[in-house]
Design a protein around this nucleic acid. Sequence first.
DNA 1: GAGCTTATCGTCATCTTGACGAAAAAGGGA
DNA 2: TCCCTTTTTCGTCAAGATGACGATAAGCTC
Lengths: 225, 225
Amino acid sequence: MADFPACFVTADLVVLTVQDNELRVLLVRRGIEPYRGVWALPGGFVLPDEDLDAAAVRELREETGLTAPVGHLEQLASYGAPGRDPRGRVVTVAYLALLPHLPAPVAGSDAEGAAWAALPVADLAFDHARILADGVERARAKLEYSPLATAFCPPEFTITELREVYETVWGARLDPRNFHRKVTGTPGFVEPVGRSIAAERGRPAQLFRRGPARLLHPPMLRPTP
Amino acid sequence: MADFPACFVTADLVVLTVQDNELRVLLVRRGIEPYRGVWALPGGFVLPDEDLDAAAVRELREETGLTAPVGHLEQLASYGAPGRDPRGRVVTVAYLALLPHLPAPVAGSDAEGAAWAALPVADLAFDHARILADGVERARAKLEYSPLATAFCPPEFTITELREVYETVWGARLDPRNFHRKVTGTPGFVEPVGRSIAAERGRPAQLFRRGPARLLHPPMLRPTP
DNA sequence: GAGCTTATCGTCATCTTGACGAAAAAGGGA
DNA sequence: TCCCTTTTTCGTCAAGATGACGATAAGCTC
């Protein structure tokens, strides 16, 4: 094994949220070289005796201040092209997190600042533009056959809020009546809370929470433009 | 960066094929410690200045003797639990390959032998049972919304051969008439070659090759048992 | 209460699916 | 040659899902 060169392994995060009908990603401004002062995905080195998933959870907590288990976190892909990091051989295991909108992000120890950036974003450090694009495409695809759109919503939400998540992530308009029928008619997608909430205008909407289903059968397909 | 411990990175392969109506995986019997003599997924260390995908392609070629670009290869997931390899911190980037049936596999340099093993298999080295299970589930899911079942077939195949791939991977029976209608009616899934082939018995079947579609719209859903 | 806005329910044509009948196209045997 | 078997391929029909859109319900403000 001594014949093989050592690598460093990092866990980077594509943290997506929906706010003001915009898809936004959590970015940090790098405080150290390389790419000092450039926006990048949050992340960091995997610690000794730390599992990859644990590293992602730790980074997510450090960057967002999240303690409660809300939203969704899954492994996205790994990136290890030679030369992607000028410091040497660094392999990144990227994770995708989908979160409801949170207060202002917290800057990490080696960052000058953090912000929610509306997509599309330009000029990211390393190969983070590619990782971000892969994460967004994964999120778009997953909304089709899984109930993960609820990860963008607070614990209790209305069908209209859920529809706005779909419309924002997909960049498409959906018919409110057909969407309502599809969501409430798919077993395990959402469960009625039993209460209603008064909107600013119009008829109050029923509140729902996420149901037990992990997969949508049949899936909710994107409109074919 | 010197604060962080070095890891070793390997690329391991879940190579699946369909033969005799069985789903089979390529395994090697390890010739070196640890787990000497135990069956494992093929794979090896990523070389210096080698991209992850390139390492997977190289390992696949070394283990199968494949030169022509047939079948399908994609990244599956990464596994890096501490202690998964007794030699130290080893992170594995797993790849999933779907291939038509090939002649007998070639044993690699550090393996005592190689074989196509019918699923399910037991007693694999490291955490390879988990990686294999993830690969099989990925393959099953991908048959639903992509035309990748054609990767299990030779360049020219009949609709019945394609259906047998689905039936084998899913472990379910499909109606030949409805399957034929669905496959030939989905744009870009398969293209007629124009010739027919005489089977052992019954009416000769038309030959098809894979079409240009990357995604099936609408998807071919697994039967709900 | 009139008027506005949004949520929710219904209707209907169209498309897709699951179950299954039937014709087409080969070979084998009497 | 004429059945018989087998497999492929095409049709039919009911049930379910979808897209387009009308209609009603339930709040608000004036």
